[in-house]
Design a protein around this nucleic acid. Structure first.
Lengths: 197, 197, 197, 197
DNA sequence: AATGAATGAGGATTCATTCAT
DNA sequence: GATGAATGAATCCTCATTCAT
């Protein structure tokens, strides 16, 4: 077997975790199973992660960061808000399509203990999701986006797209290019101040 | 202690299950704990439910039905589409506020096996959510709702509201009456054909 | 298999623990092995003891109490100090002979964490070993026992007998009645004020 | 870091083992921890010791030898038995005071398999403890020591002192010079033929 | 000689489920 | 119907030992 550099082995384990979470959720996820999926011994996992919770937490952070990186890709904050919005939405959709496991695992992370959730939420907005704050601010000040709180704008923009992407990944739905454009247009209507051309 | 009628005992157990799921998720949920919370013996639970999975499945069905019942409450399909929409959205919000446990547990049910999920999805649309189909059909035919698939309309209408309600229940967000109206108005903008008064 | 009353089952497990500790010490003592030795399932042990440590602690308390009960058997504190001494020493020896497992396990308990040890030590003197305090006090006041601290008198009286009994139980030594009397006489010489008839 | 000569490295590991055993017992003793305490890599330990058991066994032998060396220090077998006795007892006490780790670890070694114990016992008397045999023989023949077996005399002389020293090291007891002399005098009374000046 | 990443059997503990009362 | 003691497979995690570098 080819040698794996430590960094890669850590990543291999994280990838395997995501694969398992996506296919069966936390239910039916065991360290033994993870070891098998990762192609390493159980003990090896503990060389890279303090314990099960640390592993999950690390994975979560990684996904949020990956998501943020992908969502803000090619974002030019000199372009008009609508232009930026289209990039953000399209990137969101693309991330979900390109990262089936991460997309399907999203719900699994929603039910960590309450205090952990709060911390994560704040962390995310302060760090990886920070550019969104600027985007929302500019949009509201230019009277292009409705005067709603950041969290609300985020929900209106991302939740429908992510939910539809998830259903698509599950095979419950099939969306073509034209429909996708309509969906994104619809979420724009949700957050945009009406009466604009 | 007062005798409990069998039907009530079954319900008592389901209620206790929801309470436990909402407060600690599947993690830290055990049949023993459930017995304690329900005030019955462990063995008794098995008189009313085949096994743990059956219990969870029953609870899920129950919640979906409750949700549907609440969402369609006071819905008059003779009223204009927008009027109906407002009722549906407001009911959705109210259900989330009145059923904290059910709202917070939503994510817990998302990772059943894929085939089960598909069956549930189809069941839901054919039964409890069936009135929505009529609503969407009418709306599209009247050229009031955008010509998008049912699932997509559902995502655009319900996901943002439910997500915002969940955040509110978690204490991450605080929404007042005026903001709620704006949010609902925004989701209407998302699905409504534009250019209407 | 005959039914075992709960009280007896608890005792069965404690007995089995002692047997295992005596034969192999803490090294090679596992809950699985204990279950086998006790004739119960692993989980059953946890119905009677919170965890491994609680089991060990309970056993220790039990042994100390048994030891005390046996040592003070037939002790008449109206009799002369020497008479009482002889009873105590003989009882100590008899306890060791009658409780091979407890005797051989003694050393195992000596290396619990330091704070636990201190607590145990104080507890023992305040409770089960309390009659010894009276015995020592009387003896010193009557100028029959040397004016040494309680702990020191205890060491001089009990350690040699217990150590010799342990060696005997291990088969490293063989002591007959006459030798035993000489040993006890020797420990009397150690603690008695000399010059008495 | 300064190079360490092989012999020294072996000793370093043994010292570290003793330190760890004394502070936490076998519980919480691991080869990894030992490596850290010794300042070497885990694998290095296996260059000097076949395995964990061999390491422990070696350490045990080393302690017994150290103990013997210390106990017989300055022993002049031309001096009167009592004089020699005083030296032996005082040396024993001093060893315990100077070797806290060894003293506290004593109990840890008691539960090796029975046959190993017998072999060790015989070995000790034939080798490192050999001078005691002469001492006892002379004492008994001179009618100064009571006619008791070697093991019994050893128990009467050493067990109380070692036990009291251990308690002192644990902080359960505090012994001053005067008390120590009384204790040693008491053990002399235990083994000496009475009626001597 | 020395390292420490990797291994996997074995440890303590939990928990869904059964069944005799 | 109702109970809860008993079960033992399955869980997470540890740690003595090996071996390629």
């Amino acid at each position: 077997m080819a040698k794996i550099a430590p960094k890669d082995k850590r990543q291999t384990i994280l990838d395997a975790t995501l694969t398992l979470l996506a296919s069966s959720g936390f239910h039916g996820f065991s360290m033994k199973q993870l070891a098998a999926e990762s192609g390493v011994a159980v003990g090896t996992i503990y060389l890279y992660f303090a314990d099960r919770d640390a592993l999950i937490a690390d994975l979560h952070r990684l996904i949020v960061d990956d998501f943020a990186a992908r969502v803000f890709k090619d974002l030019n904050d000199n372009l008009p808000i609508k232009q930026q919005f289209l990039t953000l939405s399209r990137n969101t959709w693309d991330f979900c399509m390109e990262n089936r496991n991460a997309t399907l695992s999203k719900g699994q992370f929603d039910h960590l203990p309450l205090d952990v959730l709060k911390t994560r939420h704040n962390d995310a907005w302060k760090n990886s999701l920070n550019p969104l704050i600027t985007f929302y601010d500019k949009g509201r000040q230019a009277n292009v986006l409705k005067p709603l709180p950041d969290d609300v704008l985020a929900s209106l923009i991302f939740e429908p797209v992510i939910h539809i992407a998830t259903q698509t990944q599950l095979g419950l739905l099939d969306i073509n290019e034209s429909e996708l454009n309509q969906i994104i247009a619809a979420t724009w209507d949700a957050v945009a101040v009406s009466g604009q051309e």
